[in-house]
Amino acid sequence: MTLSAQDATEQRQKKHVRDRWLLSAPALILIIAASVGPLLIVVLYSFLAPGSYGDVKWEFSTEGWFNVLFTRDIFDDTVSLADAHFSIFWRSIKLAFATTVFCLIFGFPTAYFIATRAPHNRSLWLFLITIPFWTNMLIRTFAIQEVIRSEGIINTLLMKIGIISAPIQMMFTDFAIMLGMTYVFLPLMVLPLYASLEKLDFRLIEAGYDLYASRFGVLWRIIIPLVKPGIIAGSILVFVPALSSYVVPRVLGGGKNLMVGNLIELQFGQGRNWPLGAALSVTLVIIVLFAMLYYVRNASKSGGSAHG
């Protein structure tokens, strides 16, 4: 009696799980086939030899990985460190980091401002932050370009007022890239920060003032520690896409100021080095993975004590 009832529940449970796998199958298959799965092919390609007109030759080779770190002189085969690659990776990390810091400096007060509005107004402010996020990134980058170009509105204005006599060259600089990325990724910082700040218990802040904290003391010793998970989440959300940014440096950096994304693209043109491009891609993914790991570890550490 009891046994068969148990069997029946077990059967039902099995069917339940099987149904759920069937239901999720289309999504999983599509993502694995056209988004995640191909990453394995990239790993595979990074261990093949470059073909003469792009693509690869089907033989094992570590040349791609070798080329990430070193360059071989075309004439005498001498090996030296691939300075160009290092400097591009280093610049990407620096720019992504600077972008994250700027997004934090601007995003934190903005998120705080939104979180302290009357509840029924908050979603409207939040909406104002997200609108640019949902509009085309290329268009937003283009918009920044229009503002900072030599013939753009800033230079034209400054020259009209007479502050400068010749336009300031802002396009095609690291500054332009950083400005563009800050502009494009700011909402990604504001949203998680807001989510944390919204849950902030303002009675704790009251307690802080009661115990003689200054405005800054309350901010530094109470608010910031309490919303640390949000700060970390926002930083990762900005840092990762900034590091692997492609459109912004391509448009605002011109051909000179490359970031990793553009370096990778370069390897996939005609007659370029696909295995090197693949190896560079894998390197990028590994860096991103480390950033995420750092986030997950920190989030689980500070998450527990954040709201007791």
Partner: peptide, 13 residues
């Protein structure tokens, strides 16, 4: 002047 808050308002961090 210091306050003992109703919900204690201890700093969880």
């Amino acid at each position: 002047v210091n306050t003992v808050f109703q919900n204690y308002a201890l700093f969880p961090h």
